[in-house]
């Protein structure tokens, strides 16, 4: 359905692949460098919804920018659809495949009319005008902002602006969207809008999603959770696997979803409860028999 996989080196099954990536920011003065990624290896499959977790300074944003060649590895390699990000000539090809949505919705919109902003990406790619029109309309419908196509972005809410930013990426017809803390500056309603949108895009259009966040609750709906700490991968697996390691996460000053936290504390207090509770619904289901028992 999306652009076909290029039959590159063949042996890679993952759509995006980081192999032992190290990365250092060069400090302005002297030759002093600060290494923020210490050998990260991970693969992301086509159509997958991956949440990349970690607190500030864990290297998760730096990792995100490796995937569309905004930052290049100091050591190791990053492949996107078989393309090496270190190859300068492939930059545009890689960015067409992997779109990056940034944190601040105000700073990533270019034009003063919504539909013209969404058209910016395809225009850069040299797509024919009638085709751009079609893509813009589709992208705006996909994020449910079609009715706002002639509005000025500055009059929209944060969640709406962020959805426009997502539409701007969708219009380039990427295989994958990487979102770098897209909800950090939004109110709870805007956060729900954005999360709902990216889940729908993943489900209905098969777009691979890498969601970088430090809200544990946002990671619950992902296929896979990767937890980063201090430039390394701490643990990864399904949300259930990852969030059952409460002690490990706590030891690295990371939170778990609120429902998991509650069950964890109740269990520590000696109440027999099941493992692997992630959502409020599961939490209610787990607590119900206990409540009934005490009533009787």
């Amino acid at each position: 359905m999306m652009g076909s996989l290029k039959d590159g080196t063949g042996y890679m099954k993952d759509y995006m692949n980081a192999e032992n990536v190290t990365f250092s920011y060069e400090a302005q003065e002297e030759e002093e460098t600060v290494e923020v990624l210490h050998g990260v290896s991970l693969g992301i499959q086509k159509g997958e919804f991956v949440a990349l977790l970690g607190h500030n300074g864990s290297g998760k944003s730096t990792m995100a920018k490796q995937f569309n060649a905004m930052l290049l590895p100091s050591g190791g390699k990053v492949y996107v659809d078989g393309l090496d990000t270190l190859d300068e000539d492939l930059k545009i090809e890689i960015r067409r495949r992997v779109g990056l949505v940034l944190q601040n919705p105000d700073n990533q919109l270019v034009a003063s009319i919504v539909e013209e902003d969404v058209a910016f990406g395809p225009e850069n790619l040299g797509v024919a005008p009638p085709e751009i029109r079609k893509r813009v309309d589709e992208a705006l419908k996909a994020v449910e902002m079609y009715d706002y196509r002639l509005h000025a972005p500055y009059k929209l809410s944060g969640g709406q602006k962020q959805r426009i930013a997502i539409a701007g990426i969708i219009a380039m017809q990427p295989d994958c969207i990487v979102l770098d803390e897209p909800t950090a500056m939004l109110d709870p309603r805007g956060r729900d809008e954005v999360l709902e949108t990216i889940h729908r895009l993943n489900r209905e259009k098969g777009i691979t999603v890498v969601l970088i966040t430090h809200y544990m609750d946002e990671a619950v709906g992902a296929d896979r959770v990767i937890v980063m700490d201090d430039g390394r991968i701490l643990t990864q697996g399904t949300p259930r696997e990852v969030f059952s390691q409460v002690e490990l996460l706590k030891a690295h000053q990371l939170d778990v979803p609120q429902a998991t936290e509650l069950i964890y504390r109740l269990k520590a207090a000696g109440i027999p409860l099941p493992d692997g509770v992630l959502t409020i619904e599961e939490c209610v289901a787990a607590l119900e028999p206990q409540m009934n028992r005490t009533e009787r």
Partner: peptide, 12 residues
């Protein structure tokens, strides 16, 4: 930020 966002959207 804007320069980065524009680059992400293949501006060249």
């Amino acid at each position: 930020d804007l320069a980065m966002a524009m680059e992400c959207r293949c501006y060249h």
